[in-house]
Amino acid sequence: MLRTQQLEYTYPGNKTITFPDIQCEKGSQWLLLGQSGTGKTTLLHLLGGIRKPQKGKVYVADQELNTLSSTALDQFRGKNIGIVFQQSYFVQALTVGENLQLAQTLAGHSADSDRIKDLLSRLNIGNKIHDRTNRLSQGEQQRVAIARALVNSPGLILADEPTSALDDENCKEVIDLLETQAKEEGATLVIVTHDSRLKAFFDHKIILQ
């Protein structure tokens, strides 16, 4: 499902990071661990097609991301990759439900409100559908972000420090949700984190040096 070959990224200051090759089967769940400065977020952006590597290749669902045009890559990402960020970003002017709808239409799907309702209630925030996102608590915001990552049933879900802003209780809950929902959707899950609380939850781990 997700594969990298000799991935290398050079920052503007000429600092180069070489990433280990990764190969994740469909439906598998991975933890990418590393201290800050080890290029975790960069790697996640490379995997998600948000940033282009100077060297090496990224395959998602057997599609090499670098060969796609900018617009095609945007479409591919919208359809096949769901991303949960460390901070929850939303379109401020829209409600929770509208944010999810936007994710559907931007990916080229038609709006499916049943899917949205179903997803939100599975994440225990069904009653927040008409709320503005800035009215939600951190934990609730992270759930909406998960719902948004899942809404188009992507084959790959990437999560960048999804738990770093959460307390233990919320942390466990969010990870549980990510795990179970990814499983339910049959999606491959890759979590990038320095949060050692998560080590216990995952079998597959990659340590970045």
Binding site: I50, T71, D74, R77, Y89, V91, L106, A107, R148
Partner: peptide, 15 residues
């Protein structure tokens, strides 16, 4: 951030 997010969600530059 919104605009970047929309790109992540599949919006193209021209959109």
């Amino acid at each position: 951030y919104e605009l970047a997010l929309m790109r992540v969600m599949g919006a193209s530059r021209s959109y």
